[in-house]
Design a protein around this nucleic acid. Structure first.
Length: 498
RNA sequence: GGUCCCAUCGUCUAGUGGCCUAGGACGUGGCCCUCUCAAGGCUAAAACACGGGUUCGACUCCCGUUGGGACCGCCA
């Protein structure tokens, strides 16, 4: 008996104590297509996805497009694009609520028949006026229930349908992250579940869909926590079992208000354009609110394996672009040069470094990328640096030119040019040998030669190791650039004399 | 205004009553490495919002205060 007890305890622990009530996990991400997939939405999607994958459950994408005036197909496409870029694959959907209006109406009809909902003939304008009135007197705006017991329709008006919210007792939300949260039912409003134009509203559709789709865990932003007791009353009215709820803390901007455009880029796809890797964004987002000891960098497999609501925090988190950049750099450093070469190609085209459709030696590009990848924070950075490897002519940075392409460097560069010309190979080791010999001969430090060469090769003073740069450029290109630098120095000298 | 949520370095966080002289990470400063820039290594400054309890003992539990946030739509 004792042994049995131990075993069942162990099992409970394994499947996590908050989930012992359910077997097959079904979760959903339900964005409304009134904008692009943004950072906050992506994080909600991610936590749903992680939980589904962690539990071997089903992840559903549902489009909440009941607001016909603001929803567009373009945004649906944009959301899907964002999800795909992040690698958040779904098992069912995308389902659209506009395809299900008949279903919602039948649920509403049922509530009306049972006396759990009623027609409301107040116009939106009247409602708004009363709301403002209440607010201006410092009162809580709440529907006064004046249509609750209406027996006859009001002529000339098309009614909306309101849910008859119980006003006695209280409703307790048992949240996986926050624990028990109690609401007085007297605070709950008779919410509109069907608009006067016959379309259903969010609080109804979300419940009907979650029931129909057998959603077991509702994981969403904590801006929905206040809606939850109302939705629970709807579940109760329908006689359906409740799902588990998990309300994720918000993501805030630097000023600690809800993240918005004011705080910079919020669209997920904007991060792709800025040269971020999806893995880096995922890693960054998951650590906003979730932690696993001291670990900062995770593979996707680790994330799926370790994810649990027990490690999700309650406090809102400030979005910190600096740390995202650092993570992006970590992922770039850990990537293969071949993989990065492919990823950076569109950025090179966009920068005009290579014409669209031009075939580039990808093996060579990868070798160039290899020298740069621990120096690039983004793919945009990488593309910018790659420029001097690829284009024929580099422009000298004026300051760099003044400092290093001068008469002091002339002899050294001329010597180097001659020495390199006789070189049969062009490897790192051979190049270093030549450099060492020249600096020794002139009695200078390596930097005295390396910096002028660096400017000659890249146009600037920052680059990978000079031998690596030369090796990637190759003998022909290197000699041409050396020649050009020598000429530039000589021209500069003549300019001074005259 | 009402309801609800939240509170550890500037930021993300570890911490589940003694392991805390509060740990890690980003960022910032210094040093090392070095042909530049990075990367890397070492190092420094930097936090338990405040006040009461409970307890032999509170960052950890309870209450209050303060501060921040969310919601209060015929938006989702």
């Amino acid at each position: 008996m004792l042994v049995m007890r131990r075993q069942s305890d162990a099992v409970e622990h394994l499947i996590e104590k908050e989930d012992i009530l359910t077997d097959t996990v079904r979760v959903r991400f339900a964005p409304s297509p009134t904008g692009f997939l943004h950072i906050g939405g992506a994080r909600t999607a991610l936590f749903n996805w992680l939980y589904a994958r962690h539990r071997g459950g089903t992840f559903i994408l549902r489009i909440e497009d009941t607001d016909r005036t603001r929803s567009t197909d373009e945004y649906i496409g944009a959301i899907i694009e964002g999800m795909k870029w992040l690698g958040l694959d779904w098992d069912e959907g995308p389902l659209r609520q506009t395809d299900r209006f008949d279903v919602y109406r039948s649920y509403v009809a049922r509530l009306v028949e049972e006396g759990r909902a009623y027609y409301c003939y107040c116009s939106p304008e009247e409602l708004e006026a009363r709301r403002q009135e209440a607010l201006s007197h410092g009162k809580t705006p709440k529907y006064d229930g004046r249509c609750r017991h209406l027996k006859e329709p009001v002529a000339g008006r098309t009614p909306a349908v309101r849910f008859l919210m119980p006003q006695e007792g209280h409703t307790v939300v048992d949240d996986m992250i926050r624990g028990k949260v109690e609401f007085e039912n007297a605070q709950l409003d008779d919410l509109i579940i069907l608009r006067s134009d016959g379309t259903p509203t969010y609080n109804l559709t979300v419940v009907v869909d979650d029931v129909d789709m057998k959603i077991t865990h509702v994981i969403r932003g904590d801006d929905h926590l206040n809606n939850t007791p109302k939705q629970m009353q709807l579940y109760k009215a329908f006689g359906y079992p409740l799902p588990r709820f998990a309300h994720l803390p918000m993501i805030l901007g630097a000023d600690k208000t809800r993240l918005s455009k004011r705080h910079g880029a919020t669209s997920v796809m904007a991060y792709q354009e800025m040269g971020y890797l999806p893995e880096a964004l995922i890693n960054y987002l998951v650590r906003l609110g979730w932690s696993y000891g001291d670990q900062e960098v995770f593979t996707r497999e680790e994330l799926v394996k370790y994810f649990s609501f027990e490690n999700v925090g309650k406090a809102a988190a400030v979005f910190n672009p600096e740390k995202l950049i650092w993570l992006n750099q970590q992922y770039i450093m850990a990537s293969t040069p071949e993989g990065l070469a492919k990823l950076v190609l569109p950025f090179l085209v966009k920068d005009g470094v290579i014409p669209e459709g031009e075939a580039l030696d990808m093996g060579w590009l990868a070798s160039a990328v290899r020298t740069l990848q621990e120096r690039a924070k983004t793919l945009v950075d990488l593309a910018r640096s790659l420029r001097y490897y690829i284009v024929e002519d580099v422009a000298f940075d004026p300051k760099a030119k003044e400092k290093f392409l001068n008469e002091k460097g002339l002899l050294l560069l001329a010597d180097l040019k001659a020495a390199l010309g006789t070189l049969t190979g062009f490897s790192h080791a051979e190049l270093e040998g030549v450099f060492r010999a020249i600096v020794e001969k002139h009695g200078v430090k390596l930097g005295a030669l390396a910096q002028p060469v660096r400017v000659a090769m890249t146009g600037g003073t920052e680059s990978p190791g000079i031998f690596e740069v030369l090796e990637v450029l190759g003998k022909e290109k290197a000699l041409r650039r050396l020649e050009k630098a020598v000429l530039a120095i000589q021209e500069g000298a003549q300019g001074k004399e005259s």
